[in-house]
Design a protein around this nucleic acid. Structure first.
Length: 490
DNA sequence: TGAAATGTTGGGGCG
DNA sequence: ACGCCCCAACATTTC
């Protein structure tokens, strides 16, 4: 540790930007030409503005390890300490005599508010404190309709984004990061505590490689092999049709700008129309991510409250047993249960299945979308306040550009359409493994003989459906019709 | 980024 | 040969 003041020292505060490439804050720190101290703060639970669940924590643990390693390979280190962040930053600045501190902006309203406070606090201590862009393609506060307000519909929003000049090419990772003459104390990954039983139970490692290198590899592999098939395959949970970048994007192990440019470059190399269409469909998903952040910034109450006011009075059911059946994957609807179990085991769920299980919770069970949102935030490694809030309000029909109230997914049809052979269901609901494809999505209709041969006893080895979908649908339609806003007279 | 109900069309069985 | 009915296939509308 050095006590001599060295104003040339710059601190880079890493948060959900756990990467060295295309990292604007890191670049700003390096430009100053002095030593750089990479810093990560773990906020104590009571200080955390977004409380990550167990899987998310398991992911951070791995990602930090990866970041530490790549920093070490560049002659640097990662200083890790326990928060609160404001005090930790100020302490570190005093210890290192740093003259500047840089970080990349986050857009969750409570985080943004604290960041503004931190910036002015650090500046009043005489530090150069700067927050940079890099989490999104476009700063959501600058995107406006021609009327000057925020967008509420995706298509015009995305068209507007596409009309702007494309994002700058990503910044290359520095090959060397100069360090201070003496390194300040670091608690290292010990601040995370020992890996808990619950953390170990989440199977991340068989599918994922958290960290910047894993993210880059995942993207490259997807672009190389998955682009032409993407529009059709992205809806198939039984295939590997999606990019699976969501946790990497959430933790900033890769930036949307890198994704953008890599996808366009790939489409340029592969001149078939399929590749171009695939790239467009894929980048559109990045667009939904942008849109979700845009909405969260402009409607900061939406994580808890519906955007459409008429939904404030909606009387959701209270049913602890149904909620628990849903979250534990014991609803009796195979595609729903498969999704919820995939989530529980791996901290991830295929997007199509997320829509199916969400529709089931909100429309079939009439349980509050906030319960679903909370469960997803607790159990997803990619738990992202903006994306999650948007997704749930979309499903419930109470958000901007949301699904209309009468759009109710039929879990049997969705299963047949998107998991035609039932391989996804069989993977996550092994008690149905031997059931023929014909019955895999509706075992309650299977003839006794088929059930016996497959070793399935409805209500014993696999639950009977907790609701009848047809009557649940009718019930939901009635409930939602009641709160339709009065139609303006012609 | 739905599903169900209802309407329409056209082929084929059959009296 | 013809009209009638059935129903699958597809289109439209309604929720």
């Amino acid at each position: 540790m050095t006590s001599s003041r060295d104003r040339k020292v710059a601190i880079v505060w890493f948060r959900r930007d756990l990467r060295l490439a295309d990292n604007q804050a890191l670049r700003m720190a390096l430009i100053r030409g002095g030593p750089v101290v990479p810093f990560f703060v773990l906020e104590p639970d009571e200080e955390a503005t977004a409380t990550p669940g167990v899987p998310s924590r398991a992911w951070i643990r791995r990602s930090l390890r990866s970041l530490e390693e790549s920093l070490r390979g560049r002659g640097s280190r990662l200083v890790i300490r326990l928060g609160p962040a404001g005090k930790a930053l100020s302490d570190l600045a005093n210890e290192t005599g740093a003259g500047a501190i840089f970080w990349n902006r986050l857009y969750e309203p409570p985080v943004a508010i604290r960041d503004a406070e931190r910036l002015s606090a650090l500046r009043s201590e005489g530090l150069e404190a700067v927050s940079c862009d890099g989490t999104l393609l476009h700063d959501p506060t600058t995107i406006r309709t021609s009327q000057g307000g925020p967008f509420r519909v995706f298509t015009p929003f995305w068209r507007h984004c596409l009309s702007l000049s494309g994002p700058e090419p990503p910044i290359r990772a520095p090959s060397r990061i100069p360090g201070p003459s003496g390194w300040p104390e670091s608690s290292g990954s010990a601040v995370l505590g020992p890996e808990s039983e619950a953390e170990r139970a989440v199977d991340i490692d068989s599918t994922w490689k958290p960290g910047e290198a894993g993210a880059a590899k995942r993207l490259a592999h997807f672009l190389e092999s998955g682009l032409p098939g993407y529009p059709a395959n992205r809806d198939r949970p039984d295939l590997q049709g999606t990019s699976r970048l969501s946790p990497h994007l959430h933790f900033g192990e890769i930036s949307p700008r890198q994704v953008w440019h890599a996808a366009l470059a790939r489409a340029a190399v592969d001149p078939t129309p399929g590749a171009a269409r695939g790239a467009e469909a894929f980048l559109r998903q990045i667009g939904w991510r942008e849109f979700a952040h845009h909405l969260l910034v402009h409607f900061p109450g939406t994580p808890d409250a519906p955007l459409r006011p008429e939904f404030r009075d909606f009387r959701w059911r209270k049913d602890r047993d149904a909620l628990s059946a849903w979250s534990q994957g014991r609803t009796g609807y195979p595609i729903v249960d498969a999704g919820m179990r995939e989530l529980q085991r791996t901290g991830w769920m295929h997007n199509r299945v997320r829509m199916v299980v969400a529709s089931f919770l909100v429309k079939d069970l009439l349980l509050p979308w906030q319960e679903g949102s909370r469960w997803f935030l607790e159990t997803l490694t990619d738990a992202d306040l903006a994306n999650n809030t948007f997704g749930w309000q979309w499903t419930a029909g109470c958000g901007a550009d949301a699904a209309p109230f009468f759009r109710i997914f039929n879990p049997v049809i969705q299963g047949r359409k998107f998991d035609p052979e039932g391989t996804y269901v069989r993977r996550w609901v092994p008690e149905l493994e031997r059931l023929p494809s014909r019955w895999i999505h509706r075992p309650w209709d299977a003839p006794a003989e088929a059930l016996r041969t497959a070793g399935v006893r409805i209500g014993k080895t696999y639950p009977a459906p907790i609701v009848d979908h047809a009557s649940a649908r009718t019930r939901a339609l009635a409930a939602f019709t009641a709160l339709k806003p009065p139609r303006p007279k012609p």
